[in-house]
Amino acid sequence: MSEIVLPLDPALRAALDDLADAQGRAPEDVALDAVRGCLRQETGRVRAVAEGLARRHADLLRRLGE
């Protein structure tokens, strides 16, 4: 697994530490879950927009593929 460094301001780091402590988890695990959730949500949103564009412009895309 590769690593990434995230610069967190003191308030954000304190909030992360507090949440991790409340959940009995490591701050790194809480942050990893947050990144996964964000990626899932954004991937779904981008997919929905792309599918909408493809439906709206299906005729143009078909003609470009000819």
Rank of each mutant, 00 (worst) to 15 (best):
M1V: 11
M1H: 05
S2A: 14
S2L: 12
S2Y: 09
E3L: 09
E3S: 10
L12V: 11
L12F: 09
L12M: 14
R13E: 12
R13H: 12
R13M: 10
A14E: 11
A14N: 03
L16G: 01
L16T: 01
L16P: 00
D17L: 07
D17N: 05
D17H: 06
D18R: 11
D18T: 13
D18I: 07
L19N: 05
A20T: 00
D21M: 11
D21T: 13
A22Q: 05
A22P: 00
Q23H: 10
Q23R: 15
G24H: 00
R25E: 09
R25V: 01
A26Y: 01
A26Q: 08
P27F: 02
P27R: 07
P27H: 05
E28N: 10
D29S: 08
D29C: 02
D29A: 11
V30Y: 02
V30H: 01
A31S: 04
A31M: 10
A31V: 06
A31C: 11
L32K: 11
D33K: 06
A34Y: 04
A34H: 06
A34F: 03
V35T: 07
R36A: 15
R36Y: 03
R36P: 08
C38T: 14
L39M: 12
L39D: 08
R40V: 13
R40S: 11
R40W: 09
Q41H: 14
T43S: 13
T43M: 12
T43I: 07
R45Q: 09
V46P: 01
V46W: 04
V46Y: 07
V46Q: 05
R47T: 10
R47I: 06
R47D: 15
R47E: 14
A48W: 05
A48S: 14
V49C: 03
V49Y: 06
A50N: 14
E51D: 13
E51P: 05
E51S: 09
G52Q: 15
G52R: 15
G52A: 13
L53W: 12
L53T: 08
L53M: 08
A54W: 09
A54I: 11
R55C: 01
R55Y: 03
R55N: 08
R56M: 06
A58I: 02
A58G: 02
D59H: 11
D59M: 06
L60S: 10
L60H: 08
L61S: 07
L61K: 02
R62P: 06
R62Q: 15
R63C: 00
R63N: 02
L64W: 14
G65Y: 07
E66A: 15
